[in-house]
Write a protein that binds this DNA or RNA. Structure first.
Length: 488
RNA sequence: GCCGCGUUCGUCUAGGGGUCUAGGACGCCGGCCUCUCACGCCGGUAGCACGGGUUCGAAUCCCGUACGCGGUACCA
């Protein structure tokens, strides 16, 4: 990397769908690289495919990035020195340079119909240096004919004239030099018949015009990079540095799919992670570790720490499998770092969503009790149902282990004592229990465990005294007596 | 099929000719702590894809094979 040119990178998603988790990682690496080098991080919308355009997708992308905190310096909505940042608004540039390529003899008009192209693919293979002579294009037709065809119809494209049998070198920051033989490269369409550029043209024109210094993108682009290099060369432009990131794979192999989301619980879209209650900083931390290593034994990072530690040469080259357990582990640490108040605030929407009615004060109490027992915020309510409703059954294993012949009597006696008590706080509840244990000459555990079982239906969970206090006097008495009835 | 990229514990990775009887993390298993669970701490399990070279010496370099992934559109 030339250290004298300012670093400018871009994240260039296409609004054909919601932002994918892989896209977020690409954005993250771009962001880290930009911040690390005091450069600019640009958001560019690559909306050149009218057929696949999805309304709302750009909004989702913006929302997802905002949620994660990856702020860009320039983009469609806030503008910047290189505006506009939506390719559909930059048509003039693409036409201009497509024209230049034609004039320089590095591109040509092609008039072939879809049927002719299908036919070509079947009989000869690709539209390239070996077959273009047989096709209907400005290389084979007379100038007059070409002019007439262009005038008469809009149904033509501009194709890149790929030189025959040359070797093209791509310098990749992650993989080193990768070479391709131009005989393997077809005459890529640059301008589509609808007047829109293809990704390939738009991408290099914009990267050049926007002074992009480093193109950091997914590995799926590596194969088309030689085409881009050929175009930079034809236009007399210096290509940016390239870095192709390894792809994120499903634990089942292949790309992450909606099926992984359903079967493995791995969300595919960024906003789904928000919905699932993951902490954005944890997601970013996890994503950073997926394909990159700081070289130290540190694993838990804040964004700023990641920026400090980041470098492209520590990004791996092989595909990486998504590991939900690891994400949950990282998230668990983020949850634990939250203040109880913050956790309660985050839990609120999830509480409301399942229709539990609980005041802020009590929600904070509950959060305090479960904070280091959950990995993801919604577990405050999805696990730990006993805070909100009486247990419907008692964990069988727990009953076998903790419910003894004396449990019923002890629990009843405890319930009676609690009924007589005025304030039902953690200390009172504990004092009463210990006093009763002394009185009956049993270990505290003889009452503690049946109590937990009766009140929560489980043999595990928060400390009993906090648990009882949080559940409340009325419910505790009801549940204890009910447990004695059903467990005997 | 062809082209490209990749291959270290189940997973993410460190390591880039001797310091590697391969280090860390997640997961899993065991222990300690403890009213239970969880946290925390301690310990354990498990790996250089295979075959040839090069070298005094290879996880590290080269070649081949296998496997995986990507590309092969008027999609990005």
């Amino acid at each position: 990397m030339a250290s004298d040119t300012p670093v400018r990178v871009r994240f260039a998603p296409s609004p054909t769908g919601r932002l994918h988790i892989g896209g977020l990682r690409t954005a993250l690496y771009n962001y880290l690289f930009a911040r690390k080098h005091d450069g600019d991080f640009v958001l560019r919308i690559e909306d050149t495919d009218q057929a696949r355009y999805e309304p709302g997708a750009e909004e989702d992308i913006r929302e997802a990035l905002a949620w994660t905190g990856l702020e860009h310096d320039e983009g469609p909505e806030q503008g910047g020195d290189y505006a506009p940042y939506r390719q559909s608004e930059r048509s003039g540039h693409y036409h201009e340079y497509a024209q230049k390529l034609v004039e320089a003899g590095r591109a040509y008009y092609a008039f072939d119909t879809e049927e002719e192209l299908d036919d070509l693919r079947e009989t000869h293979g690709a539209y390239d240096g070996s077959t273009r002579r047989q096709m209907r294009n400005s290389l084979t037709l007379s100038d007059e004919e070409v002019e007439r065809l262009i005038d008469e119809s809009d149904d033509y494209v501009i194709r890149l004239k790929v030189p025959r049998q040359e070797s093209v070198q791509v310098e990749d920051e992650i993989r080193g030099t990768v070479s391709f033989d131009t005989s393997e490269i077809d005459d890529q369409v640059l301008m589509k018949s609808d007047g829109m550029p293809t990704y390939h043209l738009a991408n290099i024109v914009d990267d050049h015009l926007m002074d992009i210094s480093h193109v950091i993108r997914g590995e799926e682009w590596l194969s088309s990079t030689p085409k881009h290099v050929l175009m930079y060369d034809a236009l007399g432009w210096e290509p940016p540095a390239f870095a192709h990131l390894p792809l994120i794979l499903s634990p089942n192999g292949g790309k992450l799919s909606k099926r992984d989301a359903n079967e493995l619980g791995i969300p595919v879209y960024v906003t789904d992670y928000r919905e699932a209650g993951y902490e954005p900083d944890a997601l970013l931390n996890f994503l950073a570790l997926l394909g990159w290593s700081p070289g130290t034994e540190e694993e838990l990072f804040g964004l700023d720490d990641m920026i400090d530690a980041f470098s492209l040469d520590r990004v791996g080259a092989s595909g990486v499998q998504f590991d939900l357990d690891k994400l949950r582990w990282v998230n668990e640490h983020s949850v634990r770092d939250l203040s109880v108040d913050a956790l309660a605030e985050r839990a609120r929407p999830h509480v409301d969503a399942v229709g539990d009615e609980v005041g802020d004060e009590r929600l904070r109490t509950i959060c305090g009790l479960v904070q280091d027992r959950i990995q993801v915020v919604p577990e405050v309510v999805t696990d730990n149902r006993y805070f909100f409703e009486d247990p419907e059954e008692y964990e069988e294993e727990g009953v076998q282990k903790r419910w003894t012949d004396e449990s019923a009597d002890l629990l009843l006696a405890y319930a009676d004592r609690l009924e007589a008590v005025d304030s039902f706080d953690t200390e009172t509840v504990e004092t009463e229990l210990r006093d009763l244990a002394d009185e009956k000459d049993v270990g505290a555990g003889a009452i503690i465990h049946p109590s937990r079982l009766a009140v929560s239906g489980r043999s595990y969970g928060p400390g009993v005294f906090g648990l009882l206090a949080a559940v409340g006097k009325e419910a505790c008495l009801r549940r204890m007596r009910r447990a004695v009835e059903t467990l005997g």
